[in-house]
Amino acid sequence: MNYTVKSEVFEFNPRLHFGILIGKGLNNSESTSSDIDLLRSAENYVRQVIKEEELRSLPIIQDYRNTLQEAGINPNKYPPSTEAMLKRVLKGHSLPTINALVDLCNVVSLENQISLGGHDLRDISEDLSVCLSRGTERFLPFGANEYETVEEGELVFTSGDIVQTRKWIWRQSELGKMTLDTKNVFFQLVGFEDNEGSSLIRALNTLEKFVADRFGGVCQRYIVNQNNASIEF
């Protein structure tokens, strides 16, 4: 299977870096007290290091929002999911516990203020792409039973003609959601540099450790950028 970021995407922001982990053989479970403690600790960390009024001033949030604007997407109407999650936490709310895999992905996202999407590979049968939609794609909203159409020219993450994430990093599909039965996952993280110590690399390191130590799985790891825009896995 291939994963490709089309050239037009880098025209919106040539600094884009996509960190990809292919997690295999995971043993997911209900969240333990330790998992929930990690989630609450990550929320408290966010409240300590970020002020709500300064959220949009964070460099990585600015980069997400600017990229959305360049792609013709209003980030006020369709905020990046990371910003929405951080905003919820900064308002004093706790994230709901879903299962261990989802909760620990949220830990990684919160601690590094980075976009992280996990997609169950059992729902994915065609090549993956970050691209502009052709207008023939369909999207199954989270919790829905009926597909909706996607207009031409929208920045999306797709598997064939099925959209996995709309408005770039705004909202994931019902298809590919991580459940207690999830074994194999395509993790997509989005950053803007991949030097050691960057938020992208820190997040990849932590997530890879969770996959191995908490879930007993193994990983393949890739960086996709303007100079290496496609991988096969």
Results as ranks from 00 to 15, higher is better:
residue 46 V to G: 02
residue 46 V to D: 02
residue 47 R to C: 08
residue 48 Q to D: 02
residue 49 V to C: 00
residue 49 V to D: 00
residue 52 E to A: 06
residue 52 E to M: 06
residue 53 E to T: 12
residue 53 E to D: 12
residue 54 E to W: 00
residue 54 E to A: 07
residue 56 R to G: 14
residue 56 R to N: 15
residue 56 R to M: 15
residue 57 S to T: 15
residue 57 S to R: 13
residue 57 S to H: 13
residue 59 P to L: 07
residue 60 I to M: 08
residue 60 I to K: 01
residue 62 Q to M: 00
residue 62 Q to S: 00
residue 62 Q to I: 06
residue 62 Q to Y: 00
residue 63 D to V: 03
residue 64 Y to A: 00
residue 65 R to P: 01
residue 65 R to Y: 02
residue 65 R to C: 04
residue 65 R to T: 06
residue 66 N to Q: 14
residue 67 T to G: 07
residue 67 T to P: 04
residue 68 L to V: 03
residue 68 L to D: 03
residue 68 L to N: 02
residue 69 Q to Y: 11
residue 69 Q to K: 14
residue 70 E to A: 12
residue 70 E to L: 08
residue 73 I to T: 15
residue 73 I to V: 15
residue 73 I to H: 07
residue 74 N to D: 14
residue 74 N to T: 07
residue 75 P to F: 07
residue 75 P to D: 08
residue 76 N to A: 15
residue 79 P to F: 05
residue 81 S to T: 08
residue 81 S to V: 09
residue 82 T to I: 13
residue 82 T to F: 02
residue 82 T to K: 04
residue 83 E to F: 13
residue 83 E to M: 13
residue 83 E to R: 10
residue 83 E to G: 10
residue 84 A to N: 14
residue 84 A to P: 13
residue 85 M to A: 14
residue 85 M to E: 14
residue 85 M to L: 15
residue 87 K to N: 11
residue 88 R to P: 00
residue 89 V to D: 02
residue 89 V to G: 03
residue 89 V to I: 13
residue 91 K to F: 05
residue 91 K to P: 01
residue 91 K to S: 09
residue 91 K to A: 10
residue 91 K to E: 11
residue 92 G to V: 08
residue 92 G to I: 10
residue 93 H to V: 12
residue 93 H to P: 01
residue 94 S to V: 10
residue 94 S to F: 13
residue 95 L to D: 05
residue 95 L to C: 09
residue 96 P to Q: 08
residue 97 T to C: 09
residue 97 T to Q: 06
residue 98 I to F: 05
residue 98 I to R: 04
